[in-house]
Design a protein around this nucleic acid. Structure first.
Lengths: 218, 218
DNA sequence: ATGTTGGTTTCAGCCTGATGTCAGGTGGGG
DNA sequence: CCCCACCTGACATCAGGCTGAAACCAACAT
């Protein structure tokens, strides 16, 4: 994989670059946003590691710009412990996953591996569930052949459910996947998103097990 | 999977053991390091849960010894919130993942599942009882290959019975497992749920011992 | 500034199926 | 043969889940 690392801290950046390189990926390390933007416009990356603590704090703009341009490259953001708000905003803006500083480098590789697995690199055959075809790599869904569009949160929910297809996934589990750790939710948001997914993908796409959780049939 | 749990705290240890057992794994719980060493030298575990707060603080030595001997069994370490240094050292010494106390039990199962997935072994192989196959981790059951759905209470009952497969479980024991402590019940609810389980999983799945309790054959 | 758009979050009322209870039936054991 | 423990179909209840709509919020256009 080709990875773009955007991190202004020299020590941390170097450590991350070395670690990711050691995991067998090609890393381009940019310390400034405009360099990163330039790199993104010229190279096709398979993953972006984005620090949201950049001095000018405009890391989010880069992410938004990416998504606005229709790019679906996976983005993992890093934030400091206390920046829950920023983290949430990052997820809302289309980030795929996040890491809280200080994080362990092994954790970093784990997340990268997860992303790689999820987006299957070369082969993204498309998962078929009845009339629904999901392509996680390209971020597309079709229902009865007609393309359907999902929002960021809906994707995260769908991914979580498909990651354990056939198994029952608890609400807590989904909540953890949908929202940054530490960010509490004070409503039935999970139910709402399940409802939305059903409206788009079909009533029977997700089945409810009262008191246990949700499940997409194997 | 066969899991070695090394934890000196009685309460936490018991809770962890029960939880992991309920996920469908066999657990050996050691409260002292030398017992753990002995167990490791005689049994082939597929996962080790290692507390690094052990009184003599030599949990790390166990880990290092393991790796020195060339063992590649996955190890998840647990440390207290503030012991960042120890955690890092643990990872450097060959741990695969870590949990920061206090952690949530659901988080524990998630990590275990992740480790299991990473090492190819299915997290929950499925318990086989005649025509019935139970996967506690995924919350799925099949009878003669056909999927069957259980309700929350039915799962609780099933888990209780399987946790002591082959042994006779008293009604009181079941009642305690089915209902929150203190919430008493004023009917033959246990009998009713056994009946419902039988209807779904087969008449002979549960055997009655009049006056003693119930048992699922080994 | 102001409005528009699109996503997210919350709320309230409706709906449904899991649950606890009971009553009548079954059968093992003394 | 007669207990008494256990089984099981039926049913009312209500917690848990569903969903339309409104409030909210950030980004963007006017």
């Amino acid at each position: 994989m080709r990875v773009l690392l955007v991190e202004d801290d020299r020590v941390l950046g170097a450590a991350m670059r070395d670690h990711v390189t050691a995991s067998g990926h090609a890393v381009d390390w940019m310390q400034r946003l405009d360099d990163a933007e330039l790199a993104l416009s010229t190279v096709n990356y398979s993953l972006v590691l984005l620090d949201l603590n950049l001095p000018d704090g405009r890391g989010l703009d880069l992410l938004r710009g990416l998504r606005a341009r229709g790019s679906d490259v996976p983005v993992i953001i890093t934030t400091a412990m206390d920046q829950v708000a920023i983290r949430i905003e990052g997820l809302n803006s289309g980030a795929d996953d996040y890491l809280v500083k200080p994080f362990d480098l092994s954790e970093l590789t784990a997340r990268i591996a997860a992303v790689a697995r999820r987006y299957g690199g070369s082969a993204s055959p498309g998962i078929v569930i009845g009339a629904v075809v999901v392509d996680l790599g390209r971020r597309t869904v079709t229902v009865d052949g007609k393309p359907e569009t999902l929002t960021a949160r809906e994707w995260r929910l769908l991914e979580r459910l498909l990651a354990r297809r056939g198994a029952i996934v608890t609400k807590d589990e989904i909540e953890e996947a949908l929202y940054a750790f530490g960010a509490e939710i004070e409503s039935n948001a999970v139910e709402v998103y399940v409802s939305r997914l059903r409206k788009k993908l079909g009533r029977d796409f997700v089945v409810t097990s009262r008191g246990l959780g949700y499940q997409v049939p194997a």
